[in-house]
Nucleic acid binder design. Structure first.
Length: 490
RNA sequence: GCGGAAGUAGCUCAUUUGGUAGAGCGGUAGCCUUCCAAGCUUCAGGUGGCCGGUUCGAGCCCGGUCUUCCGCUCCA
């Protein structure tokens, strides 16, 4: 029985803070908007998710290898990828309708009106002025131009505008200590990890002697200067991605797209997460690089939201890099094409991408795990416990070792068990407070197994293992414990 | 970015019209107990988000700012 209150999300955020999973960044300085830090248990959980993903990609697929590319990359990469151009347009908002316009679209529409009214000369002047101002990045001038021509919002009909702003979602900084010209030294913090894979495509293919089809996996931080970043760690300005780019022969991308679409959902379900909380969302409107795209969505407390994306990116990225870098990004395919009897030969591979947000996966697990459970005690009274039903293989702490008392040599036996298990998985030792209280503390951080050492342990070498989800207890040999836990977390 | 709401101890919240802040839970140290948050004792923890204004006096009134949540917008 669970209390699914409407404040579940709030409760999860509080719990994450109270038990050392997630803290607001720079909290003693009032925090930094949409930036969060992971605490002792949070960093363990996050690392476990990352490791599980990494292993499922690289270790479990012989044709997938990993890399770890730098966050700084050559500025031209972002021109080639389309990130610079697609987000360099100045925008303006109407304060009454809250509708946002691209400044050039707004002014061009006005020019069209003028032309239609027979004032084509005025229209031409307007366009020329606009282009000069855009080239000079004179945002004040652009706003004035809009106001001077009494351009109004088509929804509200008013000319109540905000200032003109440039919404580039990439963070930039200067590269190198001495700078004569800021633009020359401008570098971006990567807005996605994928490009680090694309630009290393040939390095990896050659050195790891990979044959198509093959994949390159990477986890790492990415940065986006989101206009609105909210919902706890769901949308942050600094976040971590786990991406895999799968390079395939042109013409086979549809099959591989289907394959990874299904494979990735299976990965989620392999963690024991409920299928009913998942759904696919196929994209109708596609990004500039995409051929096919879908999201794997999960039902968070605030609704169905994207956790992972699977995109068929065609040869867009490699072709762009080939063009901008003037280095061929081709692969020679020695396999025989049955229709011609000859090798497939040189081509730019197509790419199917799987891209999952690590922080979103973290929030997903926390949302799924959190429960305020009502317990009915033997005397009929009720009690509640807060428990995180995290998958055992991802839990920050796997085993809590708890001597029933701190006397009679029980701590010594418990320490012996600690020494035995510590090298294999994360253990936690505690002898303070009543046993029930210690169980509850472990429930709150999602520890799947607690072990109690009592007086009987001294006589027959058995201990009590207590399971987090069922709260059931069993007597098992202390010597069997390590293997018992190992079996559950692998 | 626009609109709405909120910010008091680690968490959840009190503090009746302005008079220099309390509780429960949690934490800590110890006693006692020993299989599901028992009890007793000890201690720690807040310049009321921050800055300014009004006032003899501000957690409370006013302005600004930061942060968070909700709706809209955005999300290559």
């Amino acid at each position: 029985m669970s209390i699914q209150s409407e404040n579940t999300f709030q409760a999860i955020i509080s719990h994450a803070k109270e038990y050392g999973f997630v803290f607001p960044s720079s909290e003693i300085y009032d925090g930094l908007s949409a930036v969060y830090d992971y605490g002792p248990y949070g960093s363990e959980l996050k690392k476990n998710i990352r490791d599980y993903w990494w292993k499922s990609m690289t270790q479990m697929h012989e044709n997938i290898v990993g890399i770890d590319a730098a966050i700084f990359m050559h500025p031209t990469i972002w021109k080639a990828s389309g990130h610079v151009d697609n987000f360099s347009d100045p925008m303006i908002d109407n304060k009454d309708s809250n509708k946002r316009y691209r400044v050039d679209h707004l002014i061009e529409a006005k020019a069209d009106q003028l032309t239609a009214a027979g004032k084509s000369e005025e229209a031409a002047t307007l366009i020329a002025t606009m282009e000069a101002l855009l080239a000079a990045e004179d945002f004040g001038g652009l706003k004035k131009l809009i106001e001077d021509h009494k351009i109004v919002c088509s929804v509200s009909g008013t000319g109540n505008w905000t200032d003109v702003r440039q919404f580039n979602l990439m963070f930039s900084t200067e590269f190198g200590a001495v700078s004569d010209n800021e633009e020359d030294n401008k570098v971006y913090l990567r807005p996605e990890t994928a490009q680090g894979i694309f630009v290393n495509f040939l390095n990896v293919q050659k050195t790891a002697r990979m044959k198509i089809p093959f994949g390159i996996a990477q986890t790492g931080k990415a940065f986006r200067n989101e206009i609105v970043a909210r919902q706890f760690i769901f949308r942050m300005r600094e976040f971590e991605q786990m991406e895999m780019q799968f390079f395939v022969r042109p013409g086979t991308e549809g099959t591989w797209y289907q394959y990874w679409k299904e494979e990735r959902l299976k990965w989620h379900l392999s963690l024991g997460l409920p299928a009913t909380k998942y759904r696919y969302h196929d994209h109708v409107k596609l990004a500039h690089y995409a051929k096919e795209a879908c999201d794997i969505e999960y039902e968070f407390p605030f609704g169905f939201k994207e956790v992972e994306g699977i995109h068929s990116r065609s040869d867009f990225d490699l072709t762009q890099h080939q063009q901008y870098s003037k280095k061929k990004q081709q692969y020679f395919d020695n396999d025989i094409d049955e229709s011609t009897g000859k090798p497939y030969g040189n081509y730019v591979p197509y790419v199917v991408e799987t891209s999952i947000g690590l922080d979103r996966m973290f929030l997903l697990l926390l949302s799924n795990a959190y429960e305020e459970e009502v317990l009915t005690k033997e005397d009929g009274t009720t009690d509640t416990r807060v428990v995180l039903h995290l998958p055992a293989k991802l839990a920050p702490v796997k085993l809590a070792v708890l001597p029933l008392t701190k006397k009679d040599g029980l701590p010594e036996l418990a320490q012996q068990l600690m020494r035995e298990c510590k090298p294999y998985f994360h253990c936690f030792y505690e002898e303070k407070d009543a046993i029930g209280k210690r169980y509850r503390r472990q429930d709150a951080i999602g520890t799947p197994f607690c072990v109690t050492i009592d007086h009987q342990t001294k006589e027959d070498g058995t201990v009590t293992i207590r399971y987090r989800d069922s709260m059931l207890q069993e007597r098992v040999a202390m010597s069997a414990l390590k293997d018992l836990v190992m079996k559950e977390i692998f």
